[in-house]
């Protein structure tokens, strides 16, 4: 499905935020994530399902562009 990550349309097979983090190789620390403008603590990543068109903001330099 397609989601929006930092304003860019991105294809993913991840069903939840934890899978997306693995897919993108997000580091273990120094990263904050919001889905549809709601900050999601790392402990809730697995329980946070992703839907088509979800707006995801990843605060981490490597994904800035």
């Amino acid at each position: 499905m397609e989601v929006n990550i930092n304003g860019k349309a991105t294809q993913t097979t991840a069903g939840n935020l934890a899978e997306l983090a693995t897919e993108m190789g997000l580091p273990e620390r120094g990263v904050a994530v919001a889905v549809d403008n709601k900050m999601v603590p790392r402990t809730e990543w697995t329980a946070t399902s992703l839907c088509e068109g979800a707006n995801i903001v990843i605060i981490k330099a490597a994904f800035g562009g």
Partner: peptide, 9 residues
């Protein structure tokens, strides 16, 4: 930012 492709929160 969009024009230049700067996807920084």
């Amino acid at each position: 930012m969009r024009e230049r492709g700067i996807g920084l929160p």
